Simulated assay, not measured.
Amino acid sequence: MASTLRQTTLACALLAGVLAASPALAHEAGDVLVKVGVTHVEPKSNNGTVANGAVKLDIDGSTRPSLSLTYMATRNIGIELLAAVPFKHTINAKGLGEIGSTKQLPPTLSVQWHFLPESTVQPYVGVGLNYTTFFSTKSALGDLSLGDSWGVAAQAGMDIQLNERWFLNADLRYIDISSTVRLNGANIGKTRIDPWVATVGVGYRF
């Protein structure tokens, strides 16, 4: 029994030594994380009405390449900026079909809390501010335009460490996006997009 205990103690000591000598996988204060991936924007199902409630809008989803930069202020606190190739959405009117299309850019600045900075799987949550600008809006009905939007964003995700520098990333956001709809310069209503935004990608730690 004593011999087994000594062997177990020795094995634990050797394992601790190996782990101590392994490259640190934790994000450290001052690190810059660059993540490249694919982001899908999925608006909520009911996107509001225009023309005094006579026309219900439905805006479809869009998937594009994305890039994010995160600065680790501490081992637990990260400041992240999300950017992407412009998303393109089809604008549908229920009962009428497609009535137009638009493009948008939704840069989002978030503050994150990383729960387990020393773990191979590092979950985090974040809250931030989103600015969405719409452009290249087209419609057969006339000069259709969507106003820009400011709103809050909430986020949950994880980094999965592959080695000292490389990691996989997945996260999910909810973004508050609403926009004033104008046709030929006249305000005809408001649309609420409020999408879920899912991203998967790979990251490198500098």
Rank of each mutant, 00 (worst) to 15 (best):
L105H: 10
L141I: 08
K103Q: 13
L96T: 05
S145E: 06
P107K: 14
Y131L: 07
L109T: 02
L129K: 02
S139E: 07
T108Y: 03
W113I: 11
V121I: 15
Q122R: 09
Q161W: 05
V121A: 13
T108S: 09
I177P: 04
T102R: 02
E118C: 08
D148H: 09
T102A: 00
V127P: 06
W113G: 06
N169M: 03
T132Y: 06
S101E: 05
K138Q: 11
I177D: 00
L168W: 12
L172R: 03
W150R: 05
T132C: 08
W113F: 15
K94V: 14
R173K: 14
F135W: 01
L162C: 11
S139I: 10
T132F: 07
A153H: 09
T120E: 11
L116S: 12
Y131V: 09
G100D: 00
G142D: 04
Q155W: 07
Y124K: 03
D176K: 07
V111I: 15
D171S: 05
P117F: 13
T132E: 04
L105D: 05
S179F: 01
K103I: 09
I177W: 05
E118L: 08
P107Y: 03
G126Q: 05
Q155V: 10
Q155S: 15
K103C: 13
T180M: 01
V125M: 13
Y131Q: 04
G157W: 01
V111H: 05
I160R: 06
G142W: 15
Q104P: 11
L105M: 05
D143S: 09
V111R: 11
L162V: 06
Q155L: 06
Q155Y: 04
L162E: 14
Q104M: 10
Y131C: 15
D148W: 13
T102Q: 02
Q112H: 13
M158W: 00
L141P: 13
L144D: 00
S101C: 01
L129W: 15
R165D: 09
V121R: 10
G100H: 04
A93M: 04
G157L: 03
D143H: 13
A93P: 14
V125A: 15
T102N: 07
P117Q: 03
I175E: 02
L109S: 01
D176N: 10
S179L: 07
L146A: 02
L129T: 00
K138D: 15
L105Y: 13
L116R: 10
I177T: 03
T120G: 11
L116V: 07
S149K: 08
V152F: 12
S110E: 08
S139W: 13
K103Y: 02
K94G: 10
N130P: 06
D143A: 11
T180A: 06
L129H: 11
T102D: 02
T133W: 14
A153D: 04
G100P: 13
I160P: 00
S101V: 04
D159K: 01
Q122N: 15
N163S: 08
G147N: 07
P123M: 08
T102S: 11
